[in-house]
Design a protein around this nucleic acid. Sequence first.
RNA 1: GGUUCCGUAGCUCAGUUGGAUAGAGCAACAGCCUUCUAAGCUGUGGGUCGAGCGUUCGAAUCGCUCCGGAAUCACCA
Length: 601
Amino acid sequence: MESIEQILSRLAVKAVKELFGSDTEATGIQFQKTDRKFEGDITLVVFPFVKAAKKSPEETGRMIGGYLQANCPDITAFNTVKGFLNLSVSDAYWVKYLDTLRKAGEPEAKDTKPVVIEYSSPNTNKPLHLGHIRNNLLGWSVAEILKANGYTVKKVNLVNDRGVHICKSMLAWLRWGNGETPESSGLKGDHLVGKYYVIFSNHLKEETDKMLTAHPGMEKDEAERQTPLMQEAQAMLKKWEDGDEEIRTLWRKMNTWVYAGFDATYAKLGVDFDKIYYESDTYLLGKSMVQEGLEKGVLVKHEDGSVWADLRDEGLDEKLLLRKDGTSVYMTQDLGTARLRQKDFDAQKLIYVVGNEQNYHFDVLKRVLRKLGYAWGEKITHLSYGMVELPEGKMKSREGTVVDADDLMEKMAETARETGEEIRAAKGVSILDEDRAEMDKLYFELGMGALKYFILKVDPVKNMLFNPKESIDFNGNTGPFLQYTHARIRSLLRKSGCNPDELIAYQTEGLNISDKEKSLIQNLAAYPAVLKQAGEQFSPALIANYLYDLAKDFNGFYQDTNVLREENEQLKAFRLALVQQTGVTLKKGLHLLGISAPEKM
RNA sequence: GGUUCCGUAGCUCAGUUGGAUAGAGCAACAGCCUUCUAAGCUGUGGGUCGAGCGUUCGAAUCGCUCCGGAAUCACCA
């Protein structure tokens, strides 16, 4: 069934041609949902035709409106305000349209090369924090949105399991750890290793201060580099790269602890991966690429032996690719990983979900790949997102202001429980012992719903603010509001006596429906367009804000319509179908955000 | 200093390829639970869309110039 917009676009082109003798494209006809304040369902903007009509905007609108009404039986009335032609569409159209919406299938799978999306990319020296949460939620959600748009998607993680930062934790553990393990300490593995990273940092600071008092006037960075502790960490990294067995064994042991910790956090967050890359497996490939580049003469070697990409003629600087001691840097590893990934998947697009602090890094990465002659480097898209800030500014591990991912998730579930129990107490509902486990699950899902929605509803490019003291809300424009609306819809369907999962049949003729119902149908119809746009812009925020509008619109409808008590059986069936379709759309959308859609709450 | 991004109500955020009197939530105030879930609904107050200039029938949206904030320009990752 053609949508009313399609029909009217076609007719409007003819109208403009016949009335004013001017040619237009159907795509040039703009429609919008009629503003609540005016009479009508959809609005045609007539300003573009005023010139050709040589009439006032109102008169132009009236003429087009008259033409449309005469030629389209579904237009029952129209009015013009300034250059806006408000059209009323027949009840019959909306009633039928909902029916086609419900029966519409999913977008067809595109038979193309996969889209590879990297997200999370943790370092193995400390546990995940709030910034990682934004990253993980974004990456997972964008992957699901792309899938829903018909793409084949591969989710990958790149673990930064090597580098001087890991050596710092290892060193501190050797020196001050007394053989502590996750089992002996009761700490999650990633937290345990993170603890030693902090211990290292504290000792490093002490030594740096000492160095500075001993050598007044020395640069702080230089002082830090010269501390015995830092020298040792660097030496350890060199040993690691040389394959020293003792170091490698310790490294494997501590990484195993960390992975167990990460897995638990990922499971709680509800994110997963199709493939995990480790930098320890790819940095050598990166080094060999640099070697090739050197042989081809596109990279340069300095006198001290370090290797660089010279990007000065492109308006950038020189970029280090290998240190003078021959060890690799971040960029070197990323070159290798990118190449390996391209080989593994032959992707049509390589998406990297990485914070905007690394915009420059990805700019350089693409340029270096180009320099090295890898055409597929152009497929790389950096999905850059803004920082999560605290009221006092950026999170700083040294100042202990980092919001830990595990702590935050636990706190969310607790707050959900407190809120829920308050509500239940107010309603006088008691919880039976046998419901206890179910309630635990629900409160966890609501806590996560609140957290996920809070983060995903914000446009990814923007920095966002998180205030731990005013913990995330459960009322208003929130995840739990959407979850609540879904639960209420499902409950309503169950109580109506119909199978909530079976398509409710209704007669498509002879029903009178309200403006709220028409508005709701229009909102539901917009879902595919929103989904498409969210896929193009990599923006779960579009889905989130759409769902809120939808749920709010539904609540308005639900509030003043006694669906279950309607006496006209056919009208009741139609309304239930509308309720059902809202529930289906809500659930689909919530899934894209990784938010559960509870049956009851 | 160079480059990139951001600036909308007291606070947190929406605002579609440029369209009507710029919208939500939180916070404040006033109503609505003997009837389908009140984590809800309805209403009130709250705005120089950072500033200015330009393009346009029409600008929060596009362009230019400023102002403010952030990130980055590391032999860290």
